[in-house]
Amino acid sequence: MGRTMKLFQIGLRQIAKDGMLFVLIPAPFIVGLAFRFGIPLTNRLAEDMFSFSFSPWYGLVDGFLVMLTPLFAAMIAAFLMLEERDEDIGAFYQITPVEGYAYLTARIGVPMLWAFVSSLAVLSLFRLSELSWSTILSSSVISTLTGISMSMMVVSFAANRVEGLALSKLMGISFLGLFIVWFAPAPYSFFASFLPSFWVGKVIMDGTHIIAFALGLLSCAIWIAFFTRKFMRRI
């Protein structure tokens, strides 16, 4: 564990040098603040001018908010790993005690703990819809695991940082499940149930239901296991 934390500190120093920490720490709160005050204001304007209200989609905005920090952290972690691979630093780690899972824990696991705490705090402080504590907690858990799966997707498929950039574009698609919950009627919406974000949306829309939460965890676990196996075969 000590070695993992040491490796995490090395990564932290690198992203601090790149200035990413200054974005990663305040950004979710700034976005949350902008959503909390900007969207109701826009809604009032839309109601006055067009008699149109966004309020039925406030839950969707909350879903977007809870997924934002983990995906942001996932992207930073993935590019740190890809750069280490491009510069052959990753190969050196493989002959040290911090190879394999310890490396993944330091690079993805620990940053995701921050993402989880941040998601919890941001959703608790800036949510637009009525959400119970259990809904905030369960949607934060699923979105954090989604972030881990996205990070693993990029590092397991991309051969270098350019391919990583191309794959990171697909990270945006991970939000698709969230939109489908609101815009596609059941049972058609369940075609997107393989996407973890679908279950984030379900939990936020319907409240925490043990089956929805369990299926969300299962979809994340399948993707994480699939990408981790691929990553382990690659190194």
């Binding site: 200035g19 990413m20 974005v23 930073i76 590019f79 740190l80 890809l82």
Partner: peptide
């Protein structure tokens, strides 16, 4: 830029 993360930051 020094890295992709740095590029994404200074490109904002």
């Amino acid at each position: 830029a020094r890295s992709v993360n740095h590029y994404m930051l200074i490109a904002i």
